[in-house]
Amino acid sequence: MNTLIKSLLAAAALSTSAGAASADRAPIEPLVPPPEVPIALLVDLSSGQTLYSREPDRRFMPASITKVMTVFTAFEMIDAGKISPSQEVIFSEPTWNDWHGVGSTMFLELNQRVTIDALLRGITTVSANDGAAALGVGLAGSLDRWVDRMNATARSIGMHDSHFGTPNGWMDEGRTFVTARDLVTLATAMITRHPDLYERYFGHKRLKFNGFEQRNHDPVTGVVDGADGIKTGFTNQAGYGFLGSAERDGRRLVMVIGGAPTSRIQKQSSRSFLEWGFQAFEGHPLFAAGTVVGEARVQGGAQRSVSLVAERPIGYDLPIGQTGKVELTIHYQGPLRAPVAKGEQVAELEIAVEGLRTSRVPLVAASDVDEANLAERLVNGVVALF
């Protein structure tokens, strides 16, 4: 049964309801027109709020944005201790034959030994098709096995309407497809699970490798204040797309555009979309990272409850100059069953802002809760009677 617990927080922390509009107010409309592209989505990670969406569940070909899935899969393996950035792989002859000089490249040489660190930098900075192929073959033994790992990783984070057929987004007769909503899910997982790796590999303007120096074609890094990537994509079939992010004044926005007809529109739309998100909405902080938000009941544990904490800073957005009532609700499938691991996501905080779409952000367990021993079970049983 889905358990709902109203957060016991001071009223002042929850609401800006003084002078708020009536409860039956129509949803707030964007203050400016959206980008002139068929697919657009803008989300604030601190609140989970969707600030704007156009066709967020429409499938489209991501082209080189696919490489973000390859990079994220590698990040998962690094943080799990399965691989190391200093580990070397070989750009072997079969892979070289297929991918040498194909599209964007970091100019890997035949049978060159190259570190995972260098490959990740090549993929994230200059969209290296050869780098993505070398990484996949080097870590999984074949591209087919690597793509299987990519798809399994995508399913594990909730990308339910996407599929990958290559490690780099090269044309594959439509087998590779995504949605804007799934790309935001991917960016969110990458930024929140692997913040150090994200900072290490994304947002670089240039790459020097094998005697070549190339610049990043990311349209927002160094142009939009606080922007640090993430990835462009283009093929003749897919048009121009971009998955981007920027952090400013404690707010982290993630955006997607897809199907832009020209590079110029891709760049202008990406920049104006992010700027609009920061300028048209004002962030209101609720909880700092690590703050206890509430608690959840635990069944069969050494403790009868566990504190729930914010995994990252949590807040909400309102259009500039507007106010609205805010209600917070904790959701979890409960009671939780012991054991519970510290840092495990066990609940979500629902943020309902008057006039805007309801959103949810994850809450994690503040401590371990071991299974109860015999004496603890007896005590818990007696307490439950009263």
Results as ranks from 00 to 15, higher is better:
residue 59 R to Q: 14
residue 88 E to I: 05
residue 115 T to M: 15
residue 127 S to L: 05
residue 71 V to P: 06
residue 91 F to E: 04
residue 99 W to H: 05
residue 91 F to R: 05
residue 63 A to S: 13
residue 68 V to T: 12
residue 97 N to L: 11
residue 71 V to Y: 11
residue 70 T to N: 03
residue 99 W to Y: 15
residue 70 T to D: 06
residue 127 S to Y: 01
residue 79 D to Q: 14
residue 127 S to N: 13
residue 58 R to I: 01
residue 111 N to P: 00
residue 126 V to G: 00
residue 89 V to D: 07
residue 65 I to S: 00
residue 117 D to P: 00
residue 79 D to W: 00
residue 68 V to R: 09
residue 56 P to G: 10
residue 93 E to C: 01
residue 128 A to K: 01
residue 75 F to R: 03
residue 102 V to S: 06
residue 125 T to I: 15
residue 124 T to F: 11
residue 57 D to T: 03
residue 79 D to H: 02
residue 83 I to F: 03
residue 85 P to V: 02
residue 128 A to D: 12
residue 58 R to H: 03
residue 57 D to L: 03
residue 77 M to C: 04
residue 124 T to V: 11
residue 72 F to Q: 02
residue 128 A to I: 04
residue 60 F to P: 02
residue 115 T to N: 11
residue 64 S to F: 00
residue 79 D to M: 09
residue 131 G to S: 12
residue 129 N to Y: 03
residue 57 D to V: 02
residue 54 R to N: 14
residue 79 D to V: 07
residue 127 S to K: 10
residue 86 S to C: 05
residue 56 P to W: 11
residue 87 Q to I: 07
residue 74 A to F: 05
residue 81 G to V: 06
residue 68 V to Y: 10
residue 130 D to M: 08
residue 121 R to C: 00
residue 58 R to E: 11
residue 114 V to L: 10
